[in-house]
Nucleic acid binder design. Structure first.
Lengths: 232, 232
DNA sequence: CAACTAATTAAACAGTGAATTAAATTAGCT
DNA sequence: AGCTAATTTAATTCACTGTTTAATTAGTTG
């Protein structure tokens, strides 16, 4: 809403009409970058192609030239940005063994790496996957993470059968909890950093905390067996 | 009191013009209900007053009559729905003591109760508080939860000093983790229920799982201290 | 160097649906 | 009978949106 007054074009940064000279050969990638940044910040539905074009200092017609229409742009974003961003996680989890502790550690580290490399991802995930009616939810169900959560849950369940996982937790919900302890804090970082004034907490601190919580829970090592405040 | 609520007269889908007969005196509350449901499903920005009015089987002009404009409707929603919905949590946490275990259990139970009573809340929270640019974020910072997270974090920090909290976790991030383990799974329930086909998992199962995870972490009780001797 | 192709902007097109307001209509209350 | 409260109808106002066509310029090639 606020950034849409372009009737007076800034004289400085204005391209001449016609084919430009020089090497602007990765413009398509720049358009994708601009689009994904806007989509993450405002949501796909609320983002106009004009805004994306303005961010990339280009006219809306360029988006049509490179992508056709908005749906195809979104699809390109999914295929060329989101799916590749998530891909390393699968490889990583295939490498670590079947032990729950290493699986969990691998997941936490994997999300941390993804978030570090693609800062737009948590917000986009929340908006377009977590929210009902998000435009990427169905697509991700179909192609990106076909049976990824199920695979994780099954490995947890197998470990639980072998007595290598806390028997009181649910293997499927553990996957949900892992997302809630990694992607969710990443998406909410602006909030809690401000709420706590916690500018000393970086990604490493978050990972360490999360791993400690997942490893031992809230109680201190000593009183684990004696204090049965939450014992069924 | 509830004589003429949502029981639509089968013949008259459309109301007649002019003041209606009978006691339709809780219409304002019904408008708020319709609005909050839409806002949670589609987001405030994407919801038209027309849609809200249609849901309540009323014309858009009624919304103007009762609330003025959209901003005032949103404000009313915040004051009369969201804040009261969150209020019991504070009372609950004042009752349980300062022990981290009871605090955590109280928080989990408190969120579960809120979600049960107000099913729209998780989605609305995600959309309008968690997402950047959410229309309720600033308002909540100002009035609803003024120092609520800080208070929790301080109580955790104090307990940690006394050795009653796992020293490897961060008291502030523990608050974040708690939200990620409760509100987030509630908001994402449609996703994971579908992903896992987990229709056997209800709110109780979720609470039990979460408490178990927070209490002991992922590892089974016996093998906690880096032992690979699997005791059965 | 002429012709063709690629990249780009400018400007128009064709809708859409939004919030809000004014006025008319009906019911209840004194 | 008349005032007030609660509704709907219909009009007003208008900001944008995605998309397309045509013009313009730069490289490329024969």
């Amino acid at each position: 809403m606020a950034s849409n007054r372009q009737t007076i074009p800034p004289r400085a940064r204005r391209r001449r009409v016609g084919r430009p000279s020089g090497d602007d050969n990765d413009l398509r990638a720049r358009l994708l970058d601009a689009a994904i940044a806007r989509f993450a910040r405002e949501g796909i539905g609320a983002t106009s192609l004009r805004a994306v074009a303005a961010d990339a200092q280009v006219t809306p017609a360029m988006l049509h030239y490179y992508f056709g229409d908005k749906a195809q742009l979104t699809r390109a974003l999914l295929d060329e940005r989101l799916v590749p961003a998530l891909a390393p996680m699968r490889a990583r989890l295939d490498q670590v063994g079947d032990d729950p502790a290493t699986l969990v550690a691998g997941f936490v580290a994997g999300i941390a790496e993804i978030v570090r490399k693609h800062p737009w991802l948590p917000a986009l995930w929340v908006r377009e996957v977590l929210c009902e009616g998000g435009e990427l939810r169905e697509a991700l169900f179909d192609k990106a993470i076909p049976q990824f959560p199920q695979m994780l849950a099954q490995r947890f369940a197998a470990a639980q059968k072998d007595g290598r996982l806390n028997p009181a937790i649910d293997p499927r919900l553990l996957v949900v909890s892992l997302v809630g302890l990694t992607l969710f804090p990443a998406a909410g970082a602006p909030i809690w950093k401000r709420a706590f004034g916690a500018h000393d907490l970086d990604a490493n601190a978050l990972s360490a905390h999360t791993l400690a919580l997942l490893d031992g829970g809230v109680q201190p090592p000593r009183t684990r067996r004696k204090s049965n405040a939450i014992r069924k």
